[in-house]
Design a protein around this nucleic acid. Structure first.
Lengths: 296, 296
DNA sequence: TAAATTCATGAACACCACTCATGAATTTAT
DNA sequence: ATAAATTCATGAGTGGTGTTCATGAATTTA
């Protein structure tokens, strides 16, 4: 069987010229190389080199093997280098799953400095999961889950990265605009825009409307934040979004926000990982970076 | 050190699903694979797989190795196949050196059927040698020498493939055209075209003019046969070529040929190879083919 | 709950790749 | 020419290592 050592021997011979020097380069004896090749010759049924004077010359078979070694040896070495990097935790891939639509823009602010700091780590962001982000984390489809609803499991670990208030967004011209906070009943005649996810995962329903047994006049889904806020600004409806997100748009759009209920809906974004993965340097670094980015 | 066996193991695991099946596919025990990988893990400092339930899942490092195996294993296997072919003498390369300018066209007639018969054997034809064709054969620059002047050496072997007569070519309108043969003196006022090689290697000099201490009026060199014959046909000079070659052009050009001296210059084309190479099937086959082609 | 199947692990062994020593052949130096 | 130096080949012996065997822990299946 053709082994890596054979490739190395042929390669060393062509580089060094003599078998003796080749042996030295490989930290073996001349005898070892001679025996190795002799055995291989027996296996494949051809000679690999012939003595020419007191040097060696490769036969057709030898040249083939040498050609192979020129192609394969660098790949072996390259992969070993990669493995070293992986071992040192300098390299790998971080597949991030998002269960929090508006968090995407926040994530981008964390990803940018991270990529600079870890040039060998690839980041991939996924937003759709057939069986939920939690299951995806379990099944190694992703390595990190960004979610406002941590479902604690023994095999997983969550890190809160920042807290915020979920606020109701209305147009500046909206009747509710001046108020400090709203009651569930005040929304009963409104059009509510949300992202296209199950209602039970929307806090405005699960923590506000449903407990009070209230509904809105109409519930419409919109995919992107920008469009949603445009619609709200034009007075066609209202929506509920993280306070920090609304702030970013308040200067450019005629919108304002108010507290949802007297207490408000206080939330926190969590990063979830599999237990054990906190040993991976770039994973913990990502979490640190996320916390620091959010404090600013 | 990453070895072929590791690639094979990772590959088999991904193909077969379980370690036990992979072991079976490789004709080893499950234990052997487990130990092998465990050792490699120790060397590179990372885990390669983790237990997931009762199966295995590759880590980032494992995936890298597997990716490598997908690329490299086929190349190992392909080369081993080639080596088998080489061992059976079904494959190789035949580098043919030509010391006989006009023989090129004859060679083409042998090469064509040979290539059909030996699809895995590559043929390369070389015509220029810094230190002569003989030395090129010695130095493994070529594997076979086509020459009309065999220089017998103990390390080489020659096979005559066909005999022919070296004849003088003149234009049909030339004063000599009607004669059966020429004397050296009759050429003293002629222009002689030859290939650009040393005069001592030209039979017209070494076997005809020189022994009689005669010369020609002028000696001009021309590289290609066609041009040379065009020149002769136009009455600008004469040349000496193999009889069979002249025949081919006699129908299309106003030329004719006559014997050189009363006896004529009788020659033979030889194929020279290194002793030992006659064991290579396609080499002997080439020689046979050359002999048969020439008998027709 | 028992049976079956998975992978991990330790001990013992067998094999094989290596080193050492030496020889034959060739090149270089005297 | 002869000796010295360097080449690769080869046989014997050995140490290391990869393999098997036996067994255990964990998980899935019946």
């Amino acid at each position: 069987m053709l082994e890596r050592i054979h490739l190395a021997i042929l390669s060393a011979i062509e580089e060094q010229g003599t078998l003796t020097q080749a042996a030295e380069a490989l930290n073996l004896t001349q005898s070892a190389l001679s025996h190795s090749i002799k055995k291989l010759e027996g296996q494949i049924g051809t000679t690999i080199w012939e003595k020419q004077g007191r040097n060696l010359r490769l036969t057709a078979a030898g040249k083939r093997i040498h050609a192979l070694s020129r192609r394969l040896l660098p790949q072996f070495e390259h992969t070993e280098l990669l493995l070293q990097q992986i071992a040192k935790g300098e390299m790998g891939s971080l597949r991030i799953g998002m269960e929090c639509h508006p968090c995407y823009q926040w994530l981008l602010r964390v990803v940018a400095p991270f990529l600079e700091q870890w040039p060998a780590v690839d980041i991939d962001v996924r937003q759709e999961f057939q069986f939920g982000g939690l299951r995806a984390l379990y099944d190694y489809e992703i390595d990190m889950l960004v979610t406002p609803d941590p479902l604690f499991k023994p095999e997983l670990e969550y890190f809160p990265v920042f807290g915020y208030e979920h606020r109701l967004v209305v147009a500046k011209s909206h009747p509710l605009a001046g108020q400090q906070w709203v009651t569930p009943e005040q929304l009963s005649n409104e059009v509510l825009f949300t992202y296209p996810v199950e209602p039970q995962r929307l806090d405005i329903f699960s923590q506000f409307l449903n407990p009070a047994q209230c509904t809105v006049r109409q519930h419409k889904v919109i995919e992107t934040t920008e469009i949603m806020l445009q619609m709200v600004a034009s007075g066609r409806g209202i929506c509920a979004l993280p306070g920090w997100l609304v702030q970013e748009y308040e200067s450019s759009l005629p919108i304002t926000s108010l507290r949802i209920g007297k207490q408000g809906i206080m939330k926190s974004i969590f990063l979830g990982i599999r237990k054990g993965d906190e040993r991976i340097p770039y994973v913990t670094d990502f979490i640190n970076l996320a916390e620091r980015t959010s404090q600013k």
